[in-house]
Simulated scan of single mutants.
Amino acid sequence: MTDSLPVLEVVAAVIEHEGMLLVCRRAEGRSAAGRWEFPGGKIEQGETPAQALIREIREELGVGITISGHLTTNDTVVSGRTIRLTCLRAALNDAVPVASTDHDALEWLAPGRLSGRRWAEPDLPAVSLLTNAAASGTPAR
């Protein structure tokens, strides 16, 4: 990516529950409205990606998560800036989320069905990784 572009550091949760992954559709009035993404948000000053993700999921979805590992980190240029998205694998600590402050729809999808959605650009590398792993029958790393 171009070094002169501003970089926005964000993190997203690939939450698995009963073999399905949580995907969320961006609400109207938000950037990338109508597109699907893994839930998460901006990394604040002084936070690690894991700390930021735990905070963001609690704020957005009202549930706790446990981080179980790193899936991928990718840079995507969107609207004149670089979005550096780190996707972390996570599991729910408590109830299944039913609503979101940033999204108008939440769905659970099998990894092999992820490609059937209109995704926010920064999430596409993770979607590709998860979809290809599902197709080959090997876990995404």
Rank of each mutant, 00 (worst) to 15 (best):
I15P: 09
R84F: 05
L21I: 08
S4Q: 13
W108T: 02
V98D: 04
D75V: 01
M1F: 04
E47S: 04
L85S: 02
G46P: 07
T131K: 07
W36N: 00
A33C: 05
V77N: 06
V23W: 09
T86M: 07
R89L: 04
R30M: 06
A105G: 05
I15Q: 07
D123T: 07
V14L: 15
P111D: 06
T138W: 13
S79L: 12
A52I: 00
Q45E: 15
P122G: 01
G29N: 08
S79M: 13
V98I: 08
I83T: 00
A33R: 05
P125C: 04
T66P: 11
E121L: 05
N132M: 14
R26N: 12
S128Y: 10
A126C: 08
L129W: 01
W119H: 08
S31E: 15
A133G: 03
P111G: 03
A50K: 11
F38T: 00
E47L: 04
V7Q: 08
N74W: 11
V98P: 01
R141E: 15
R141V: 12
A27Y: 05
E56I: 00
G46Q: 07
D3H: 06
V23C: 13
I57A: 04
S136D: 11
A32G: 02
E9G: 00
T48Q: 08
V127D: 14
D3S: 06
L8C: 05
A120F: 15
P125H: 09
P39H: 03
A90H: 14
